[in-house]
Design a protein around this nucleic acid. Structure first.
Lengths: 231, 231
DNA sequence: CCCCTGCTGACAATTCCTGTCAGGAGGATT
DNA sequence: AATCCTCCTGACAGGAATTGTCAGCAGGGG
């Protein structure tokens, strides 16, 4: 790892000095021949760093790409932006807002050029939120219950129109078929169930606590019904 | 830089998987012999990464040393996980993979408790990838063209079954109606068009460059047809 | 007991890295 | 113009590092 290490020190040296630095100085500082230093500079440039080299003057670091490892790749940013844009369709304003905040925070840590491009590489979704039934229940209460590992009670209308009262251990939110769904362990049926959030009414905090079983339960569920493979 | 690069990919692979991974799997994934993988693991450990290796089971990443820690609220993490899970539906393996890597990297910077919870707060989507037409074109080429601000040509079958040859300035990818879409400026029609990626055939690099107009074009498009309000 | 795994050592082949030498081209100073 | 300083590139050979193969040990789980 001597090389990688040296390249890091070279970047540090470039960052440290404001004005142009000659290759000779950098070569001495990194303990390498002049020829090799030119090669190292070439390597850094290939890695995305914008290093301005002017004959008769020296090197100036124009833009710091911090090299792939520490940050996100272009493709990863694209995936994030694209994915977050899908949240608009979930009709859960708090969640959408949180997603935007998170994205903004991530973008804030990006190098300038990458950040500006990121905003325009992927677009927000074009489907209007009104397209799907609005979420009427208190999602904050639901999230709180999931987080606290505490049961909830609600009235549920299933796909065939049957209405039932249920007490459920809320395990996780999911995004299936373009709808916001709740995965829960139904205390009445004693089995895992997926609920369409839009079909839930009269949500209230229940009396049971299932701490700290949630992680185990979710894992059991995942094993019972394997999710689509990841690759 | 082949080695350094491979070590990064190895870290990504370790971050991505929750449970123990065997050395053989990692070796295959990073394209290296089993022996070399053990050496690579040793290198990462020497570099400070805490990788737990148990005989008969596999490797588990205990602690990550990369990336400055970013703090996210519980809700933000939930939004990220939920959003990223939607990528599975896009049938673009590279993008899905990038999303997983990015998520893993974010989670790696989280405090332990928060991280463990995050993995289970939201579930991956349950819709199987096969549900939608697979992406047949070379998305890498498309992304490259967007990034390079260079035109592309392709044959397009519209919703009414009409087939046309087009040259387009690709502006951005979008995720609308649950499908992967391309926003482009059609050079034939001289107007903005949305294309369903699954309807694109014979994608090739075109002859026109539109540098550096992309940002301006996307902005103009956004003003012309306002996206659903963001709040 | 077996199998599956993590882990280590040795060795040869190969690849990669590096220093040296020899130039070319552009800017700044005289 | 002349000169110096610099960035930059190519070729080549010695050396260092990386890697695959082969061999063996140790620990967990059935």
């Amino acid at each position: 790892m001597a090389r990688t290490d040296r390249l890091m020190r070279l970047m540090d040296a470039l960052r440290r000095t404001a004005g142009p630095v000659t290759a000779q100085v950098l070569a001495t500082e990194t303990g390498v021949s002049l020829r090799q230093l030119y090669r190292d500079i070439a390597t850094l440039r290939a890695g995305g760093a914008l290093i301005d080299g002017e004959a008769g003057l020296g090197y100036t670091l124009t833009e710091d790409t911090a090299l792939p490892p520490q940050s996100f790749s272009q493709l990863e940013i694209e995936a994030l932006v694209l994915a977050l844009s899908g949240l608009d369709q979930l009709a859960d304003p708090a969640l959408t807002r949180a997603g935007q905040d998170a994205m903004a925070r991530i973008i804030a840590t990006l190098p300038d050029r990458q950040a500006r491009q990121a905003m325009n590489t992927a677009l927000r979704s074009f489907r209007r939120p009104d397209d799907r039934p609005p979420v009427t229940i208190d999602m904050d209460l639901m999230r709180q219950a999931i987080w606290d590992e505490h049961s909830v009670t609600f009235r549920y209308t299933d796909l065939k129109g049957r209405v039932t009262e249920r007490e459920v251990w809320p395990l996780a939110m999911s995004y299936g078929e373009g709808n916001l769904m709740l995965l829960g362990h139904c205390r009445t049926r004693l089995d895992y169930r997926m609920f369409h959030v839009s079909q839930i009414e009269d949500l209230a905090r229940g009396t049971e606590s299932f701490r700290p079983k949630r992680v185990a339960l979710v894992r059991e569920f995942a094993q019972t019904r394997p999710a689509p493979d990841r690759r």
